[in-house]
Amino acid sequence: MVTSLPFILRITVRIRPLVALSAIALSGVLLAGCASSAPTADESPTAAPVVDLCSAAAPSGAASDAVTVEGEVGQESTATFTSPLEITNLQTTVVEEGSGDPVESGELVTYALSAFNAETGEKLGAIGYDGNPVLPVQISPDNPIGQILGCATPGTRVVVAYPPADPNPGQVYVFDFVSTVPDAAWGEPQEPQAGLPEVTLADDGAPTIEIPSGDAPADLQLETLKKGDGATVESGDTVLVQYTGVKWSDGSVFDSSWENGAPASFQTTGVVDGFRQALEGQTVGSQVLVVIPPALGYGEAGSSENELAGETLVFVVDILGTQHQAPAQ
């Protein structure tokens, strides 16, 4: 599950890890815990609640076993099967085992997939490859990612046979489990700047922000606390972040994903301008500190009914993932 930012967002955005592939019509099977076009509980035998991630994976079946896959894990693949492929229930077949530690419930995972029309065999497209990752997704026994992977290890490749769900035909996915992702920034620590708020981190990565004495700066102040090694956030990207926001005036926390219990997802163009500037051009894995004056936040005092109008806002943001916009068709 992913939260929204109730204060900093201009608009509410829900995460959609399985995005539209340009003009390609893909079903919403991998919507992470959100409403989707997946079968309802009475349509899918795998929808029953489970308590163990290892037992969550859908069983193999005649449809998923009938698919032959060519291509390396981590690269776009080719799936061959006799079409139309009859799929009556969600099925998964592991075609290559990964290595390392099994994924645990609640961890963030990244993936890539190639998709095929089960009725025609046509390749619908692929996402997550060629340096264009999708957002990390939290895995659990009762969401679609858990039903595909169970407690697999990174590097695992799974054939997923997904039954028709009106108006979508049945589909076949070649699903690659790329990696697990930390839920806090993992970049290289940088030398802090003098005069800016001081940040200390708890064992789990949650920040505490101490406001210095003196007046708030009139202009936006931006500092990279940790420099990540991932993809660069571009304008209009959808990002996955951890964050804490405090008021310069009294140091009080007004919003925090750490306190809300899960990272937040939104487009960089869907937030106030100071927050946008703090994200675009940064790299995944980075932690940034931004001081946002009212003009780049919610305006001067009295300019609106928003309780943050007139406030200088301070955020510490951990950038956990970014997903670029699909090219316009």
Rank of each mutant, 00 (worst) to 15 (best):
G61P: 06
N89W: 03
S55R: 14
V51H: 14
V94I: 14
V51M: 12
S83Q: 06
G71P: 07
T68N: 09
E86Y: 07
D65I: 00
P59S: 10
A63P: 05
T46I: 11
G74I: 03
I87G: 00
L90E: 02
V69F: 12
S64Y: 05
T82P: 02
A57I: 02
T46N: 13
A48E: 11
D52P: 05
V69H: 09
P84K: 07
A58Y: 00
T46C: 11
A79C: 12
L53I: 15
A47W: 13
A48Y: 09
S83D: 06
A62G: 14
V94R: 08
G74S: 02
G71E: 02
A48M: 06
L90W: 02
T93F: 00
N89H: 13
V69S: 11
P84Q: 01
S77M: 04
V67N: 09
Q75W: 06
A48W: 04
S83K: 10
E72H: 04
L85F: 01
A47F: 08
P59H: 08
V73L: 06
G71I: 08
E76V: 15
A79G: 13
T82Q: 14
V94F: 01
A57V: 04
L90K: 00
G61S: 04
T88I: 07
S77P: 03
A66I: 05
V69Q: 12
Q75L: 14
S64L: 10
A63T: 01
L53C: 13
F81I: 06
P59R: 09
L53M: 14
V67A: 11
S64K: 02
A66H: 04
V50W: 00
G71Q: 03
V73S: 10
S55T: 15
S44F: 04
E70Q: 14
Q75T: 14
T93D: 06
A47I: 05
T46A: 15
E70D: 15
T93S: 11
S83V: 08
L90S: 05
A63W: 03
A57G: 09
T80R: 12
V69M: 07
C54H: 07
N89D: 15
D65P: 02
T80A: 12
A63Q: 05
P84V: 01
E76N: 11
T80D: 09
G61N: 04
P49W: 14
G74T: 00
S55D: 14
S64M: 06
A57L: 01
G71L: 06
T68E: 13
Q75K: 15
A56F: 04
I87Q: 00
Q91R: 08
T93A: 12
V67D: 02
A56G: 08
T46W: 06
P49G: 10
Q75I: 01
S83N: 08
V51N: 13
T82E: 14
V50K: 15
E72D: 08
F81S: 04
V94M: 04
A62C: 03
A48N: 08
P49F: 14
G74C: 03
